[in-house]
């Protein structure tokens, strides 16, 4: 039988939000982006090109169900129904399995477009550190992709890699960043890139008497270094922004910014919704195109 874990340290909070001051009923165009990632799913609803509601949930074993649940949660207490939305774009790993989507668009294009909205048109480089992949994207002032890569083959540099470490050290994933910064001296980074080998390395370090914080510092800095070498392939041009779950991990971000000698832009929005937001923006253009054709 599979062992039941008492506590899973990598769990993070799920949430939804909507703008209570906005009345959507008289809106001309309501669109949505649904980002079904391998670990988390987000829905963003936009009313006439403005952010109206969003949700962020853990992806279940079934993509269509995850998409439906995230959508229902975003719609909660808004009075809006699925039928009120004019155009829906699916994106992310499970984009072709969003049953109510009008079109699927890759997460690369959606992140660039969403990043352009969240951080403004000056953003030229977006790094998205997701649950099971890491994307590096260069884009122009309209949020169109000019150069990209996606690393989803290897767990190093992804949220999953960090979860493995959080679990190994029995530390909550949300605390990893702050704990890793609470060290007197910055240790040498963990030398193995591969998560499997890095785990054995960490075990030996603990046995040598390293504190958990020091091991976390060594791993966060290894992850930052790893992401810098990925970014080298596309080249970093300012302004620079970081999205995805790991953008919330100060331990990785501070070290990454230090190594690049560049500060990343901050956004008032949750960075995890960038993909879904881009989807909703694509949906708006597509809805307008469709309307023109129909007229």
């Amino acid at each position: 039988m599979t062992e039941v874990k008492v506590k899973e340290f990598w769990r993070w909070k799920e949430y939804n939000w909507h703008d209570e001051n906005k009345d959507w009923k008289g809106a001309e165009t309501i669109t949505a982006g649904v980002d079904v990632g391998s670990v988390s799913s987000q829905v963003v609803i936009m009313v006439d090109g403005e952010l109206y509601a969003y949700s962020n949930m853990r992806t279940g074993s079934d993509s269509p169900d995850s998409a439906r649940n995230a959508m229902n949660w975003a719609l909660e207490d808004t009075g809006m129904a699925l039928d009120d939305i004019h155009y829906i774009v699916g994106t992310g790993y499970g984009r072709v399995n969003v049953p109510f989507a009008n079109r699927a668009i890759t997460e690369i294009a959606c992140h660039a477009r969403g990043g352009n909205y969240m951080y403004g048109p000056s953003v030229r480089t977006i790094l998205d550190m997701g649950g099971q992949d890491c994307k590096a994207i260069r884009c122009d002032e309209r949020g169109k992709v000019t150069n990209f890569l996606m690393n989803d083959k290897c767990a190093a540099g992804t949220g999953r890699g960090m979860e493995v470490f959080a679990d190994l050290l029995a530390v909550s994933i949300e605390d990893v960043g702050d704990l890793s910064l609470d060290v007197e001296e910055e240790p040498e980074p963990v030398s193995s890139t591969c998560v499997v080998f890095a785990k054995s390395e960490a075990t030996s370090l603990l046995r040598e008497g390293w504190s958990k914080k020091k091991v976390l510092a060594a791993y966060c800095s290894a992850m930052a270094h790893r992401v810098v070498s990925l970014l080298d392939r596309i080249g970093v041009e300012e302004d620079f922004a970081i999205t995805g779950g790991i953008a919330k991990n100060s331990g990785v971000i501070k070290r990454l910014e230090g190594e690049l000698k560049i500060n990343s832009l901050k956004s008032k929005h949750d960075t995890q919704i960038a993909g879904a937001l881009g989807g909703a923006l694509f949906a708006k253009s597509l809805a307008e195109k469709q309307r023109k054709k129909g007229a």
Binding site: K144, V145, T146, N147, F148, L149, M150, N151, D152, K153, C154, A156, S192, T193, C194, F197, S229, L230, R233, I234
Partner: peptide, 16 residues
């Protein structure tokens, strides 16, 4: 657009 397909892992960098 430069589309980089492939990956980077512990053993190296493999992109087309």
């Amino acid at each position: 657009m430069k589309a980089n397909y492939g990956y980077m892992d512990g053993s190296g960098e493999y992109f087309i």
